[in-house]
């Protein structure tokens, strides 16, 4: 049984390693959570992202956006590395998430075949 006692132990453990974490210059993952995104499977994508971050111990800001008018491309997930263009990936599956995390988020290479849009850094 998961207990609050376990949570307290976890807190003590995390407090030791947390000093390096702050929100400046973090990469960002943005998931389309409008009705269209949710209907297309955004929750599974979010779960896959959560698992990847856990597995690889990544410090990333995970956030959401509503419907952006590309409903037919949902589920959508954007990746933005600090100072770089924001890339939108479309029609992705939970399986694609691992690839995008490894190739783009960690190694910095856009996964061109899954990308559907690019928003220039500093734009909109």
């Amino acid at each position: 049984m998961k207990s609050l006692e376990e949570l307290r132990e976890l807190r003590a453990e995390l407090e030791k390693e947390i000093s390096a974490r702050n929100s400046e210059g973090k990469p960002k993952i943005i998931i389309g959570m409008g009705t269209c995104g949710i209907a297309a499977g955004a929750r599974d994508i979010l779960q896959a992202v959560t698992q990847e971050l856990r597995k690889r111990n990544l410090d990333v800001i995970t956030t959401q956006t509503g419907c952006i008018g590309m409903c037919e491309q949902e589920p959508l997930m954007d990746v933005q590395l600090p100072g770089q263009d924001r890339i939108t990936y479309g029609k992705i599956t939970a399986k694609d998430v691992e690839r995008i995390v490894v190739e783009h988020l960690i190694n910095g290479n856009v996964v061109a075949e899954l990308a559907v849009a690019r928003l220039e850094e500093g734009g909109v």
């Binding site: 998961k2 949570l7 807190r11 453990e13 947390i18 959560t50 856990r54 990544l58 995970t62």
Partner: peptide
Amino acid sequence: SELGSIAINHPAVMNWLEGFVRE
């Protein structure tokens, strides 16, 4: 209140929370 300055969506905390909620 148990976490202090640790974010609730820290991956390790989410992992604990998932087990807690599912159980």
